[in-house]
Amino acid sequence: MKLRLLLAGIALLSGPALAQTSSADIPPAASAAAGRPSTAKDHGAAAERCEAAVAETIRTMRGQDAEDVQFTAAKRVLTPMSGDDTGVKGEGRYQGTAGAMPFTYSCAYNATSGATSGVVFRETGKRTAAAAPKLREADIHHISTEACETATAAALKQKYPRVGRIAFGSDSRRLRPTAEHRASLEGQGGVQRAPGMSSIPFSYRCEFETPSGKLVAVQTTE
C-alpha cells in the first residue's frame, strides 16, 4: 500500500511538469510570427510602396499617355489583411498627351518583405481632352523632314548593321504639336534588315523643339 501511494505521488509530480511549456521557451521570432500590431510607419510604407507600384504599372501600360500620375490622399484607405499584409485602396488621375483620366486602384503590401502584390487599377472616366498647343506657320518652316529621316535611317542602321534598303513613305508624314514649344514629325516606311531579306514596315517619330527646329529625339518601331 505504501509503495502504491509513493508511485501515485511521483506520477502526480511528473505529469503536469511534462505537459507545461513556459512562454519563455517560445522563441521571440515565433511569438512575433503570431502577428503584431501594424504601426504608423507600416501604414506610411504601405501607401508609398503601393502607389509607386501602381504608378509604374500605369506608365508601363499607357506609355506617353501617363506621364504625370497623381494620387488623392483623402481617398486612400488602408485595411489590415492576413499576416503582415496591408491592403491599400484609393483614387488618382494621370495626365498625358491625350488628356486626363481618373482611376481607382488596389494593392497589397507586406511589412516583413517590403514587397507589393495584386496591383490593380481601373480607369473610371472618359478622357478629358487637354487644350492642344497649336503650331505656328513660322515653327513649321523650321522643322526639317530631311533631318528627321536622316536620324531615323541612322537609328535603323544601328539596329541592323547589315541593313539593305530603307524607304520612307512621304504620304504617311504627320506633324503634330506634343507640348509647348515641341512638335512631333511621324511617318512610316520599309526597311530591308539585310541584303536578300524581305522588307518589313516600320514607323518613326522625331521630336523637335520649336521654333528653333532642333531635333531632340528619334524613335523607331518595327
Rank of each mutant, 00 (worst) to 15 (best):
M1H: 10
M1I: 01
L3V: 03
L3M: 05
R4T: 09
L7V: 13
I10E: 00
I10Y: 01
I10N: 05
L13R: 06
A17W: 03
T21D: 11
S23I: 13
A24L: 13
D25C: 01
I26N: 10
P27A: 02
P28G: 12
A29W: 05
A33T: 13
G35S: 07
R36V: 06
P37T: 10
S38C: 03
A40L: 14
A40W: 07
H43Q: 15
E48T: 13
E48V: 10
C50F: 10
E51L: 08
E51V: 09
A53I: 00
A53Q: 00
V54A: 04
A55V: 03
I58Y: 07
G63T: 08
Q64M: 10
E67H: 11
D68T: 14
A73S: 15
A74Q: 14
A74C: 02
K75W: 06
R76Q: 15
V77D: 14
P80G: 00
P80K: 03
P80R: 08
S82Y: 10
G83N: 14
K89G: 10
G90H: 07
G90Y: 02
G90V: 09
G92N: 12
Y94R: 02
Q95D: 14
G96Y: 01
T97P: 08
T97Y: 06
F103V: 07
S106N: 12
Y109E: 13
A111S: 03
S113N: 04
G114T: 03
T116V: 00
R122P: 06
R122N: 12
E123A: 14
G125A: 12
T128C: 05
A130K: 15
A132F: 04
A132M: 12
K134C: 04
K134A: 15
L135Y: 09
E137Y: 05
H141D: 11
H141C: 03
T145P: 06
A147I: 02
C148S: 11
E149D: 10
T150W: 07
T152K: 02
A153Q: 15
A155F: 01
L156V: 05
L156Y: 00
L156H: 06
K157S: 07
Q158C: 07
Q158G: 15
P161H: 01
P161D: 03
R162H: 09
R162N: 09
V163A: 07
V163H: 04
G164K: 00
I166W: 06
F168L: 08
G169R: 03
S172V: 02
L175A: 00
R176N: 08
R176G: 01
R176T: 11
T178F: 10
A179M: 04
A179W: 01
E180N: 12
H181Q: 15
H181I: 00
S184G: 04
G187Q: 04
V191Y: 04
Q192Y: 00
Q192S: 04
S198C: 04
S198A: 09
S198N: 08
I200S: 14
S203A: 13
Y204D: 11
R205C: 01
F208E: 06
E209K: 00
E209C: 01
S212A: 08
G213K: 06
V216N: 09
Q219D: 13
